[in-house]
Design a protein around this nucleic acid. Structure first.
Length: 309
DNA sequence: CTGTGGTCCTGTATGC
DNA sequence: TGCATACAGGACCACA
């Protein structure tokens, strides 16, 4: 459920609440939450005990916690319904609490709550940054001036090995809109499907895909490869813009399933133009927003502003 | 290799 | 009321 703005809201909350604190004990109670940690629950709990949190990072919808002096990190993905909450140890854990992290200072503990269990936690090694964007850097209007071009891997570019295949998100300092355009044009598929492909540009899910396409006036099933570069640039600008707008108000919440680390909802739901608005008037032209299902999920769009051809 | 569809879960809303 | 069905912010993996 959570897309980039929601995950970034959570990351920001974690950054403020757990950096510098030392983990005391970890209890992982649900095996499915650790299914991607192949060394088992005991190893997971045991390794984390005593580690001091150094930073909390994100790429797309993936989060990870780095520890002082360690190459190994804690990776989290919230799936459709995952939450990371800071609660006092006295707070009764809600049902679906699948892991708890207690800290040596006995302050608020971190709890992973996940109703549908599509999310998960695991430990993984950081790999040295191997410029993930080099694939599509062909013509490149070489303006490598500002940021020391020689690929001097700044440490913030290190990502866990298991998410090296995830594309840069539009908020990443290394993100290049030209590379993204080039990659999209290589795809033989509908544009919405490409937006949802996390190996191209990461962080976009069903809500922000529909919102971006509405802003850019593109039909979700337009073939990606035939779109003009200028249209794709507009679309990617809209992707960045809509996610920035959402982030500024704490993300999109329809119910209590998406909340920040303090359990509070975001307010972007009231600003949506397409997603979830079937039958309501398009905010541009007044035509009824249409809902169609494909890819086993819903797409909302304006049949007048967003023509298929 | 690339693109597509099924599948993993629980809970809520809607309809017969 | 009961029961069945549809649908939900996602990603992986087996197949054509």
């Amino acid at each position: 459920m959570p897309e980039l703005p929601e995950v970034e809201t959570v990351r920001d909350g974690l950054q403020r609440w757990i950096v510098g604190r030392a983990v005391a004990t970890v209890q992982a109670s649900h095996p499915r939450a650790l299914r991607r940690h192949l060394l088992g629950r005991q190893e997971f709990e045991g390794w984390l005990a005593g580690r001091q949190v150094e930073s909390v990072r994100r790429r797309g919808k993936y989060l990870w916690v780095e520890f002082a002096g360690e190459r190994r990190c804690l990776v989290a993905h919230l799936g459709m319904s995952g939450q990371l909450l800071l609660q006092t140890p006295e707070t009764t854990p809600s049902r679906h609490t699948h892991a708890s992290f207690r800290f040596a200072d006995e302050g608020p503990e971190l709890r992973f709550v996940d109703q549908r269990t599509f999310g998960g936690l695991y430990l993984d090694d950081l790999e040295s940054a191997v410029s993930p964007a080099r694939a599509a850097s062909s013509g490149s209007s070489s303006r490598a001036g500002s940021s020391g071009s020689s690929g001097s891997d700044d440490s913030s570019a290190r990502v866990p090995h298991s998410i090296a295949h995830i594309g840069l998100d539009p908020f990443d300092p290394s993100y290049s809109i030209d590379s993204a355009i080039a990659r999209i044009r290589q795809k033989r598929s509908g544009i919405k499907r490409v937006l949802l492909d996390q190996t191209v540009v990461s962080g976009v899910g069903n809500i922000y895909a529909d919102e971006s396409l509405w802003r850019a006036r593109l039909h979700p099933e337009r073939e990606a490869a035939v779109l003009r570069p200028a249209s794709l640039r507009t679309l990617l600008d809209c992707v960045h813009e809509v996610m920035s707008d959402a982030l500024s108000v704490g993300g999109t919440s329809f119910d209590a399933l998406y909340v920040n680390v303090n359990g509070e909802s975001g307010y972007f739901a009231r600003d949506l133009d397409a997603y979830g608005r079937e039958g309501q008037e398009c905010h541009r032209c007044g035509t009824a927003i249409r809902r169609e299902t494909f890819m086993n999920r819903s797409s909302f769009f304006c049949p007048r502003c967003q023509r298929r051809a």
